[in-house]
Each structure stands twice: as C-alpha cells, then as structure tokens.
Amino acid sequence: MEIISRLPRHVACVMDGNGRWAAQRSLPRTAGHEAAEAAVIDIIEAARSAGIKWLSLYAFSTENWRRPAGEVDILMRLVRRAIRKHAPALHTRGVRCRFLGMSDPRIPPPLVRDIADLTTLTSDNRQMTLTVAFDHGGRRDIVEAARSLIHAAVPAEQVTEATFARHLPYSDTPDVDLVIRTSGEQRISNFMLWQVAYAEWVFPPVLWPDFRATHLWECLEAYRSRQRRFGDVRQSTATTGEAPR
C-alpha cells in the first residue's frame, strides 16, 4: 500500500499545449481544444481510481479572454458539450464537480446554467472533488478574499493565514500538493496562487491532448520520490500530502 500512503491529497493540472498539438498537425487551434477533452476524462478517471481525493484542472484563465473571439466562442461550446456529455458518468462515479472563477459576464448563460446544474447534481458526491478553474485568476481570488475580510469587518490583528484562507472561494479545498504543467512550460500563470504555495511542480514535456493515465502515474511517481520540507531544513521526508498549517 505504499502508493496509496504517499499519494498527494490534492493534484492540480495546468492543461497546456493544445494549440501546439494542433499546430504540429496543421490543424486549427480549436482542434487541440477538442482533442483535450479525451485527456481530461482520462485523467479524471485515472486520478479517481488512484485514490486522489482532490483534483483541480486549469481550464480557462482570466487572461484567456484575450484570445480571438472565435476561439473563445468555440471553447465555450466545447466545454458545454463536454459537461452535458459527461455529467451522468461523473455523477455515477461519485465525483463532486465545482467551478472556480466564473464571474465574467461574457460566459454564455446556457453554459452558466449547465455548470450550475452539474454543480447541483454532484454536490453530495464525495469520492473525489474535481475543481475546474474556469475564468480563474489566482490574484483575483486573493483580492476577493481581502474584500470579503474588509466587508466582514475582521480586525487587522485577527487576520492570519488561516482566517484569510477562510475567505477564499471554496475555502474547504486543501492546499495543492502536486501541480502538473504539461508541454514543458514552466510558469505559474496566475493559477491558484494561494493554494500552490507549498506545492511540488512537475513539467512533463507531453502536450495536454496526449497526456494520459500513464503520464499521470509517472508524475505521481516523481512526486513520491521528492522530499518535501515546507521550508524546514531538519525534516527531509514525508511526502504524504499533508502540509503543516
């Protein structure tokens, strides 16, 4: 049971490389997004069967709105189609789905409706929690939390890391233990900035549409081989995924 005991509790994926995957095949960028769907489903299932309790996927950032309108439009349609297609399977597998971000008025109302429905449908599931960062920005979340603190009139001396974290969206989400960024790019890209503070990062060169369960297992293996210290030079073991708070 060594694998289970050293499994990260919370894995996050920055799904990078769709455009390059399409370009390599002389296809439009949107073909890459389309191909990404299979990888998403494969990874959700692989993570769930591996026993990972929290999985976060970076689907669309606040900066992604700068992309050409046509591409954004197709992306929105693809997300909607994927939600409708996979909702029953996700529900029957006990996956609780949540969406982080989702505040831009440009998100089409039917998609908002479907996302709300998927969230409602799966709200009681506890097998695994899937957080899809959609229209997400890590800095924005921090700003929102600060606003929320001010609105709640929390006295300055009571603002600690723990109280601050309670004002972040989905404050029950544990810190991320492992971030996987595909396509070899090595940037944070404004992703869950607060939650990734102590995360281990792996950068597999494979492009996201080609990312499969075997790649995920390799990443989990890489995580296990690392020594997590959380800034402490004396301790040099414990890759249990439990960060000290």
């Binding site: 409708r84 909702a87 109302p109 039917p110 409706r113 429905d117 998927l118």
Partner: peptide, 23 residues
C-alpha cells in the same frame, strides 16, 4: 436538494435547445 439534483440531471440529459430560443 434531491429534487433540485433530479431537475439538474434532467436538464443536462435533455438535448440542449437551440441558441436563439435560449437567449
């Protein structure tokens, strides 16, 4: 809550109406 979930499931499983009638 269960009724809400059943309704959500029903909406997700019925074919999406065309864009115009939704908007």
């Amino acid at each position: 809550r269960k009724a809400g979930q059943a309704a959500a499931m029903l909406r997700l499983m019925t074919p999406a109406p065309d864009k115009v009638s939704q908007a």
